[in-house]
Design a protein around this nucleic acid. Sequence first.
DNA 1: ATGAAGTTGACCACCCGGGTCAAGTTTCGT
DNA 2: ACGAAACTTGACCCGGGTGGTCAACTTCAT
Lengths: 193, 193
Amino acid sequence: MTASGAPPTLRSDARRNVDRIRVAAAEVFRARGLSAPLEDVAVAAGVSKATIFNRFGGRIGLIDAVIDDLVAKELKGVIEQARAVPDVGERIRVYVGALRELQYRLPAVNGVLLRQFPDSGSLMDLCRTGEAFHGELVAQGHAAGILADGFTAHDLHALTIDNALALEHGGRPPRADYDRRTAFVLDGIRRPA
Amino acid sequence: MTASGAPPTLRSDARRNVDRIRVAAAEVFRARGLSAPLEDVAVAAGVSKATIFNRFGGRIGLIDAVIDDLVAKELKGVIEQARAVPDVGERIRVYVGALRELQYRLPAVNGVLLRQFPDSGSLMDLCRTGEAFHGELVAQGHAAGILADGFTAHDLHALTIDNALALEHGGRPPRADYDRRTAFVLDGIRRPA
DNA sequence: ATGAAGTTGACCACCCGGGTCAAGTTTCGT
DNA sequence: ACGAAACTTGACCCGGGTGGTCAACTTCAT
């Protein structure tokens, strides 16, 4: 049942503001993570903070409204990209590399991985999707015998979490350093030849 | 020249409080890191927060007063322990393992590695000591040809920093998981056979 | 033009920790 | 024992950041 108490259509100015806020939130969250001050989103949208509360109910509502275009598409893209790789070893390398690249490029994704807003259903769903794929990938890796003994899906997840924390609280290292370290990480989790 | 404006000796109650605060600070910092509320240190010492300011001037002074017994000894111990290992590969493994163990066991050490209080000279000195040893170790590792190509002292430092951030902001994983991941880290930075 | 929808700036509450100060308490020399 | 200096303390202020609210004003739609 649809809520019947609210008017079915918004007034034109309200609709315009909703759109502006969505766009602004996407920009601000993209660049500075999901914890960026709502005040800044409001300024970027050219509205007042109160309007965000009026239209979205708060940060969670706003995240739910933009997470799909912001993070879900990119993250799912990385997973699909990896799934398309036929060789298991290469698949794991592609996935870890692409995910780390995404974490570097899109701070918002770290908010998802870190479950920064457990009250956001869409965020938690997305996080679970990622985690499920980790399970899949690690199972395939062990089946093919190319992962280090004892390496678990949990370990893979911890890898991404630790990287998210490092980026979030430690800042981004130069890209070259970051990529080099990605290679060390990958070497550490594969079975020694 | 010694400051002549201040009385050379403290009154007995003041001396007692200084000792109590030092002990309490060591305990609290040890268990909860160098950012633990001074209020908590005061309570543990059975004095008021203001007394800490009277006696130590603030957090920095307090850190300077306890860092040696708290962290410096342990950290230098790890370095000496590693230096005593004859084989280079083993030396690196011992050092990384022992340092990670220390980071897990003693949150205060992470505050040092993260340079949480740049105004504390003793803290910064200690941090530099560690960094210098990293340089030494990596140079030896490359000379012996047992480190991965392109691995730098900076990378080793980043490894410890990232781990510090993960422990600080992500909490401690079960010990078994942590140790297993230590092994993956080590495998990732050594030259493939 | 009018009333409802919508917006807004200013405001409140909260939490947290660093830091300060007047007033009260303890020590110590005489 | 007593007075002054040393010392401690609770209560206070501050800044910084965030979620959230509301009366008054503006804009839209009919």
